[in-house]
Computed example of a mutant assay.
Amino acid sequence: MPEIELTAGTLAYEDTGGPGPVVVLLHGLVHDATVWRKVTARLAADHRVLAPTLPYGSHRTPMKPDVPLSPDTVVELIAEFLDRLGLTDVTLVESDCGRAQSVAVRHPERLARLVLISCEAFDNYPPGAPGKMIALACRTPGGVALMARVLGLKPLRRLPVGIGALTKRPVPDEIVDGWLRPLRTDPAVRHDFRRYNLAVRREELLQAAEGLRKFDRPALVVWAVDDLMMPREHGRRLAELLPQGRLVEIEDSRTLVSEDQPERLVEALRTFIARMPDTGTPGTA
């Protein structure tokens, strides 16, 4: 994968290149760009798809130790990534984490559209049993290393405190191994993960939600009906507060819709990206 040197450190990213609308895909904690592999493969024929691996624990190159690492840092990192690559009229898509909401509020100039997929919102932090486990691990000496070892045990991967809470269907072991390897093997990555999570401001997403009321560009909220971590009502609330918000609910999926229902997710993305901007009232697509 290509890499780019940014203020906080080096980001690796996938870039399909080619013509077509630019789509930037953002993942959640303890995932990397491979969480989008099924979506990227289906969009690449007629979209330029970029998927950076953010410093969420599955990154291979640690961030600069002298630069603070927090959700606010990541928001600026995403904005700098878009700026340095000269990406404009971007459809910014995020699953699981909620940083894209703050990007849309603070840096709307590069975005043509916003897509939020079953993500942290409002006061839902840490979300679900996995989120609470991560928060506890980061507060406990040696907790992150222990968590990574436990999640690395294949018989335990479907437990509701691990990957089992995120997907209805098993994620291939080689993909999960890739997600967990940096946390298991690199103390500097574990340090990044810990300092990111300890720097979370609980009010960040509440502030972002208020800011989204002024985001005047097309926005799509995609929510998994069977999500165990992100309350279903949060999807509707996000769609209603966005001036051009639309809601699509996807059945038979948990948080990682890109894993459980990639075909339906891509269909929703294609329809949304192809639609001309409108100024209609928020509703359900």
Score class of each variant (00 low, 15 high):
Asp72Ile: 10
Arg194Phe: 07
Gln244Lys: 14
Leu265Arg: 04
Met230Asn: 12
Lys132Leu: 14
Val93Met: 05
Gln207Glu: 15
Leu183Asn: 01
Arg106Tyr: 07
Val222Leu: 11
Tyr125Ile: 08
Asp15Met: 01
Ser258His: 12
Glu5Gly: 08
Met63Gln: 07
Cys119Thr: 11
Arg158Lys: 06
Tyr125Gln: 09
Cys97Met: 11
Ala12Asp: 07
Glu267Val: 09
Pro160Leu: 09
Arg110Ala: 13
Pro262Arg: 13
Tyr13Gly: 00
Leu77Arg: 03
Ala188Asn: 11
Pro62Leu: 02
Leu29Val: 15
Val35Arg: 00
Val200Asn: 12
Ile117Gly: 00
Arg190Ala: 11
Val23Glu: 06
Trp36Cys: 02
His191Ile: 00
Leu220Ala: 10
Glu94His: 11
Phe122Asn: 07
Asp15Tyr: 00
Met229Asp: 13
Pro19Gly: 15
Ile4Glu: 12
Pro52His: 05
Ile4Ser: 10
Val105Thr: 13
Thr61Leu: 11
Leu82Tyr: 02
Leu11Lys: 00
Pro126Ser: 09
Pro68Ser: 08
Arg202Tyr: 13
Val24Phe: 09
Pro19Glu: 15
Met133Asn: 04
Pro62Ser: 06
Tyr13Cys: 02
Pro2Gln: 12
Arg184Asp: 03
Asp83Leu: 01
Val200Ile: 15
Asp186Thr: 10
Thr73Cys: 04
Gln207Pro: 05
Glu204Phe: 05
Ala199Tyr: 04
Ala135Gly: 12
Gly20Phe: 00
Ile4Cys: 09
Leu153Arg: 13
Arg169Leu: 13
Arg213Cys: 12
Leu153Gly: 06
Gly18Trp: 06
Asp226Glu: 15
Arg213His: 14
Ile78Asp: 02
Val248Cys: 09
Arg194Asp: 02
Leu206Lys: 13
Thr279Pro: 03
Ala100Gln: 07
Leu159Ile: 00
Arg275Lys: 15
Val35Asn: 00
Pro108His: 10
His234Asn: 15
Gly211Tyr: 10
Arg106Gln: 14
Met276Leu: 15
Glu76Ile: 03
Arg113Gln: 10
Ile134Trp: 01
Val93Ala: 00
Gly9Thr: 02
Asp227Asn: 14
Gly211Met: 12
Ala100Phe: 12
Ala129Lys: 11
Gly211Ile: 10
His31Glu: 14
Ile273Val: 15
Arg181Asn: 11
Pro182Trp: 03
Trp179Gln: 05
Ser102Phe: 05
Asp15Pro: 00
Met1His: 12
Lys154Ala: 12
Met229Phe: 08
Val105His: 06
Ala165Ile: 01
Ala209Asn: 06
Pro170Glu: 10
Leu269Gly: 00
Arg139Gly: 13
Arg217Asn: 12
Glu204Thr: 14
Ser95Tyr: 01
Val225Asp: 14
Met147Leu: 15
Leu205Asp: 03
Met230Gly: 07
Leu82Ser: 01
Asp15Asn: 05
Gly164Lys: 00
Thr185Tyr: 09
Gly28Ile: 08
Pro19Phe: 08
Asp216Tyr: 10
Pro52Val: 02
Leu153Val: 08
Ala188Gln: 14
Tyr13Ala: 01
Val93Phe: 08
Arg113Asp: 07
Arg184Ser: 09
Arg157Tyr: 04
Thr279Trp: 09
Ala165Met: 07
His191Leu: 13
Phe272Asp: 03
Pro243Val: 14
